[in-house]
Amino acid sequence: MQDPNEDTEWNDVLRARGIIPQKEKELTEDDIVAMVENTIEKKAQGKDMSDMGLDELNDLEDEIDEEEERIFEQYRRQRMAEMREAQQKNTFGEVKEISKSDWVTEVNKAGDGIWVVIHVYKPSIPACKLVNQHLTNLAAKFPATKFLRSVSSVCIPNYPDKNLPTIFVYHENEMKKQWVGAMAFGGMNLKQDEFEWMLAQVGAVQTEMEEPPKPEVKDVMNLAIRQSAINNDDDSDDDW
């Protein structure tokens, strides 16, 4: 789950061992300008432009083809767009309270590439308080994800309390996942890293955890079934 392009000590170790490729150096605006100037210098064959006559300058301009200029300009615009996108994706960082009237704008029209995690809750329910606490911490940890919450009676009239807490995960106007009721979260035993792992498996956050913080529920159940079978076999042996 870890991004191989991140600057972390673990990634540095992996790069040193050749497990992941070396991170490519990001080009700055100054780098691009230098590349353009270098191209011009090569075309000029080392001769300073101040020493060139009018005909030589005209010839130089003709030799710098439009394709080279187009490539540099395209790359510059692409980098600027990436920088704007990265800045936009890191402008959340907190849990925002919304009402029913905000749902379409904040959830359905959140924007391209934006993951939305919304908690439908009631303040009086202990499991909802726990989820809200984890949401606050995760919102600060993953500012690229939009974290929202809304009181059930405000956003979904007559929504049963037995369904709380409820988490909906949206991406580009499509619901990707929902967890309904306290048991879907493991009740009051839910830990923040477990909640983070749940969201990461959907794609809502980019976690650095490489494995779940605790065994999956189905694995625990399978273990219990196998243990029960072993115990039954032992009992049968005793009968003989």
Results as ranks from 00 to 15, higher is better:
Q88H: 12
T166F: 00
I125A: 12
L60G: 03
K177Q: 13
V217I: 13
E208M: 13
W115C: 01
D219G: 01
E194C: 15
E85P: 01
Q74R: 11
D65C: 03
V33A: 11
P157L: 01
E69S: 01
N90L: 10
R226Q: 15
Q2T: 10
A229Y: 11
A34P: 00
R149L: 11
F185P: 07
K191T: 14
E174P: 00
Q78A: 07
K100E: 10
I118Y: 09
V151E: 09
S152G: 10
N137H: 13
H119Q: 08
F72N: 00
A139C: 03
N132I: 02
G93Y: 09
D65R: 15
M83C: 04
T28L: 11
N108S: 08
K42E: 13
E82M: 06
Q206M: 13
E56C: 12
T28P: 06
Q74T: 11
D55S: 14
Q201F: 05
T166Q: 05
L223R: 14
A229T: 11
P157E: 07
E211D: 13
R149A: 05
S152F: 05
E56H: 11
P21C: 08
A86D: 15
M209P: 01
E97L: 12
P126C: 04
P213F: 08
Q201H: 03
C128Y: 03
S236M: 13
T28C: 09
L14N: 02
L27V: 02
V107K: 01
E210Q: 14
P126A: 08
A139T: 01
L164Q: 02
L199T: 04
R84D: 12
K42T: 05
K100Y: 04
Q87V: 10
V120C: 04
